[in-house]
Design a protein around this nucleic acid. Structure first.
Lengths: 234, 234
DNA sequence: CGTACATTTGATTTGAATCAACGTTGGTGG
DNA sequence: CCACCAACGTTGATTCAAATCAAATGTACG
């Protein structure tokens, strides 16, 4: 975690924070937030930077401000499974465990707001509401993880791809239904998220394209042409 | 949830509770526990009883006292995935969501201690420590769920079976290493937990038996003969 | 003791992995 | 500006692990 403590960092005021209403800190009233924000440090990452590693001391709790963070686990022989994607507003890590038990890596340009776990616990003594808020985020993540257990255990490759595209589309809900968006992950990352190989992912993308359910241009911009039919596949 | 509210129930004192040190209520001091315990109702279930259903109002938080509870999700066509096994001391449900988003069913004879979610929130106003404790249990479950994502997404059938047997063995840690224990799940349930079919589960059990890594008698009693080698397969 | 259910085992199929080229994209330096 | 190269992605041929289909056997229980 040297890269977090050692670097230049911004002490953004929460007032300007783009995820103020989404992050776990949103439960705090203005006075408490003022105090809490003083504990935070933001840090930026470029594509593919390691944010923390399995086995290292759990020193920081993070909140994704910008970009995407992939959380993954590894088997001894290098097989990888992405167990979560952290979008803006999502919490990173926890304040319970003594060690991280997975790896976190930035996907594209990413900005994260960090708090020291010890400071959060200290803060909580006078502001216990923060626990309820962290509990909310943790429960949400548990829900997502269990949804993904169903996907990995019981869905076919086609259903997995369709579900994945709908998940991405969910994060562009503000836009019009058929709005194009950038697929943030490489094929290998999609494979590692869905428990597949790159080839299988590629084949099923081609499939959906030939069926005119989706369109892809400029290499990574995607339009969902037939949302309802995609949903029925997922 | 009629079966919880309507039935005869015991008002066990926490002092006699066999999972007092494991449950989320263990964070409370004696005074608070006294008050908290008054909110609880215990209920017993026989094998295969539905405890709660996806889509129903999230009214109760539970704590498993005895037996095992399987938490599962279903696809439209009936495909099932067990997303968690609740052992004694494990928390059941959450206090955040408005609805249950999975099914819970007893496996064998089971006893559960229930608290109304509304009452917990009310209790928390004067005892915020309960949130920290529930957070601990939730974080633990998230860790288990992510471990299982790796298993479902990236492990082979043999590795899945080996991991499953070691998981069961973990829950008999007090016993000697090669102590026989009862496999609490039917083959179909094991399959639904590991994202496999009954036939594949059966074949790999036979495999491990012929390799002398495990032994099974009386239909469902299991001994792990070679713990280390089983571990190397998982 | 018989019926229903659970489990095992065998034969076959199949969806996804693997192996193997080939195409595309984007960055670098001549 | 283009040639080169490395990383990424697609497509095809083949293999393989697990699913499916199909009996047969084992077990629990009224």
């Amino acid at each position: 975690m040297n890269n977090i403590t050692s670097n230049h960092y911004n002490l953004d005021k929460c007032n300007n924070c783009p995820v103020r209403d989404l992050s776990f800190c949103n439960a705090l009233d203005n006075g408490a937030l003022e105090e809490f924000s003083a504990l935070s440090k933001t840090k930026s990452f470029q594509d593919g930077q390691l944010i923390f590693s399995e086995g290292k001391t759990n020193e920081y709790l993070g909140s994704v401000i910008l970009g995407i963070v992939k959380i993954y686990k590894l088997l001894d022989d290098g097989r990888q499974q992405i167990v979560s994607l952290g979008f803006p507003g999502d919490m990173l890590g926890n304040i319970i465990d003594s060690e991280y038990n997975y790896f976190a890596e930035s996907v594209g340009d990413t900005k994260i707001c960090f708090y020291q776990v010890a400071r959060i616990n200290n803060f909580a003594e006078s502001n216990p509401a923060i626990y309820r808020s962290i509990l909310g985020k943790t429960t949400e993540q548990l829900g997502h993880a269990r949804e993904w257990l169903l996907l990995l255990g019981r869905k076919t490759a086609q259903e997995k791809i369709a579900s994945f595209l709908l998940l991405l589309a969910e994060h562009h809900k503000g836009d019009s239904p058929n709005q194009a968006f950038k697929i943030p992950l490489k094929r290998q990352e999609i494979a590692d998220f869905l428990g597949l190989t790159i080839e299988t992912v590629s084949r099923h993308f081609s499939n959906l394209k030939s069926k005119q359910l989706i369109r892809e241009y400029a290499g990574h911009m995607l339009t969902i042409v037939d949302y309802d039919q995609l949903k029925s596949l997922a």
